[in-house]
Write a protein that binds this DNA or RNA. Structure first.
Lengths: 172, 172
DNA sequence: GGAGAATATCTTAGAAATGAGATATACAAC
DNA sequence: GTTGTATATCTCATTTCTAAGATATTCTCC
């Protein structure tokens, strides 16, 4: 037989677009979902942040205000877990909201290490003013899906989130 | 008729848990999906970041490496739009990857303003080593859903993301 | 009731990212 | 060609956030 012109290794390196095709189907599906999930989240977050920025707030600050608005006074640790920031982050954000006179710290009678975060009257008034508009902005961003599709998506994502969060716990 | 004891305004303010029930059904569904989407994203991102941190990389750095690994050399602007960072951010991240000798900048012959980002051999080797493990970690994080459910979720989120991104464009 | 482990928040240094503007180049219309 | 506008990247000041450790308090178990 004559000499065989074999595809050199370097060719595979130079055409790595082919790479995703080399992983199995389950992995390809999962990675695709991860990319799409990231983009969808970023798009809605950008829309929400733009809305909130008009009132001089960041999404994280708004997250605290919203939690206090809907649940009432909460321990700082509870707020921290709810909006997913570090312990230093919650202190930083609280300091700023206190400086803006939207939130106040209250001491906890049963545990002197702990503190409550609570809306001031000014914070209450601000949320009453801007929450409906923000809710409308988020709702508008979701209008690509019907209400039924939104419920299906929520159910699937809730399951996914729980599984992923559980795995993260294990590795602690 | 006898006197009517009307619920005072202050009561509504003091029991704001009731507030979400005051918005219409479509808004409640959308807000619920937004919260669940955020948590699912955060959980998977945390899992991915933990995996990547073992190799001394951040998710954003890995995003650049992955793009170059799969697509080949790209203009910085393309990379920037793909991984969703600011123009300053892409310069910052590239500088660091260049310092680690994983990526290099190449000039563009047809446009002297532009530059390509490309993996170095060291970067290629690193990605070949760590990408499969990372893909497995993401896939594992998604295992709460069957492959079919993942496809359904991806389809829904793709539609949602497009709509939300389109709205963001409009307000530019 | 005392020692040690656990917990809640705060402090600090610095990492990560943004946004406005600077610079250089390209393109379009005249 | 020249002028004006758009584009690609970079610079720099600032904002946002984290991680590690400090401090104060509580809980557990003997």
């Amino acid at each position: 037989m004559g000499p065989v012109t074999k595809t050199p290794e370097s060719d595979r390196v130079l055409h790595p677009e082919a790479h995703p095709l080399m992983v199995d189907d389950a992995t390809r599906t999962a990675l695709r979902l991860w990319v799409i999930l990231s983009r969808a989240h970023a798009a809605v977050a950008a829309r929400g942040a733009a809305d909130i920025a008009r009132h001089g707030l960041t999404l994280a600050e708004f997250g605290i205000l919203e939690a206090l608005y809907h649940v009432g006074p909460m321990l700082l640790g509870e707020v921290q877990r709810r909006i997913l920031v570090s312990s230093g982050g919650i202190t930083f954000l609280m300091d700023r909201l206190v400086a803006k006179e939207l939130v106040e710290r209250r001491c906890c009678n049963t545990d002197r290490r702990a503190r409550y975060a609570a809306l001031t009257p000014k914070g209450q008034a601000l949320m009453a003013e801007i929450f409906p508009g923000h809710a409308a902005a988020i709702t508008e961003a979701m209008q690509g899906l019907t209400e039924e599709e939104q419920r299906i998506a929520a159910e699937l994502l809730r399951t996914m989130g729980r599984t992923a969060a559980g795995l993260a716990e294990d590795s602690r």
